[in-house]
Computed example of a mutant assay.
Amino acid sequence: MRPAVGALLQDIAGKRLVLTPFGDAWTFSTRMGKKSVLPGLEEVAAEIVSGPLDWQAVTALTGEAVSGVAPELACPSAPVLERIATSPLPTHDSLSATTPELTPGQFTAALLVRAANAHI
């Protein structure tokens, strides 16, 4: 799922930012030449929402309806991501059909909503 989410984040960021996988991390470049290495997708999402973001484009690209204004943005998958993020890591024996799953689009929208709400 990581490559698909990375591609969606790049599409959402548009030309103002360039996102490239770098091992387990991501390189992040701006048009002004600033480069950073970010350890994970949460940090990438935080960087994307720190600038102007078209939430209608996020909805169109991810298929997740985003509503509200930060710090109260919402999308249907945000509570699922929050539950996943705050749950203990499952063991091989505890994996089951009740473990929530998100599509790349759902994960991306929820990740951006979470980052935007925390950014304020």
Results as ranks from 00 to 15, higher is better:
74 A>Y: 11
58 V>A: 02
30 T>V: 02
91 T>G: 10
89 L>K: 12
33 G>H: 10
118 A>V: 09
48 I>K: 05
6 G>S: 15
39 P>C: 00
70 A>V: 04
108 T>F: 01
36 S>E: 15
79 P>S: 01
97 A>H: 10
52 P>H: 06
40 G>M: 07
51 G>R: 15
26 W>Q: 06
76 P>A: 14
13 A>N: 03
35 K>E: 12
31 R>C: 00
120 I>D: 12
35 K>S: 02
114 R>E: 07
36 S>G: 02
12 I>E: 06
58 V>M: 08
65 A>F: 08
41 L>F: 07
11 D>M: 04
78 A>M: 05
74 A>P: 02
60 A>C: 02
101 E>D: 04
38 L>D: 01
43 E>I: 03
88 P>W: 01
44 V>Y: 08
17 L>G: 04
91 T>R: 15
50 S>V: 06
107 F>H: 14
13 A>Y: 03
70 A>Y: 06
116 A>T: 04
27 T>W: 10
55 W>V: 04
102 L>G: 01
106 Q>H: 00
34 K>T: 14
46 A>K: 15
91 T>I: 01
55 W>H: 10
42 E>L: 09
58 V>D: 04
22 F>L: 15
108 T>G: 00
60 A>K: 13
60 A>N: 12
93 D>M: 13
62 T>V: 00
46 A>Q: 15
66 V>N: 01
90 P>K: 13
114 R>H: 09
48 I>V: 15
70 A>K: 13
95 L>R: 15
87 S>E: 06
84 I>T: 08
80 V>S: 04
99 T>D: 09
